[in-house]
Amino acid sequence: MSKARIATIWLDGCSGCHMSFLDMDERLIELADKIELVYSPLVDAKEYPENVDVCLCEGAVSNEDDLKKILKVRARTKILVSLGDCAVNSNVPSMRNPFGVEAVCHRAYIENAQLNQQIPKQVIPPLLKNARPIHECVKVDVFVPGCPPSADGIYYVVTELLAGRMPDTASKTRFGA
């Protein structure tokens, strides 16, 4: 059997979901026989490839770059998994939403900055009006809430998907878990 093409991406999240992924420990070795990690912050691929079977997506969609990335991921991926609360419900990144972009940038780059007080206009991608859950931007196939979801939860989701089944995530994890 050919190996499943798996990817992971990291949008507006703290990398905790990726840490939890790594916490699968020795089970990663077992998974390595069944999957090929074709794109991830954990590997070196620079361009998100075509024909990805499953992509685990961490983080909310918070800036223009996140949005571009998730649109590309959706177009090139069969099963898109919202991994963790930021992806599922925009979680901590959404706590800026009630205040508006202008006030948030002012707080971060002017009020709280000691040097070079200015709001960046280049290199750093502009924030979207709200940090949003991924499913508000593109279709999501599997939701895995949790902050972060446990390694056991992620292992369960990945192995179920590899076996061709849709995981029942409510039995393994919840918002805030």
């Binding site: 919202s82 599922v88 205040f99």
Partner: peptide, 13 residues
């Protein structure tokens, strides 16, 4: 079994 919210968030202040 609510694993995501299908309605737009209001984000009230």
């Amino acid at each position: 079994g609510v694993d995501h919210i299908r309605y737009p968030y209001l984000y009230p202040k």
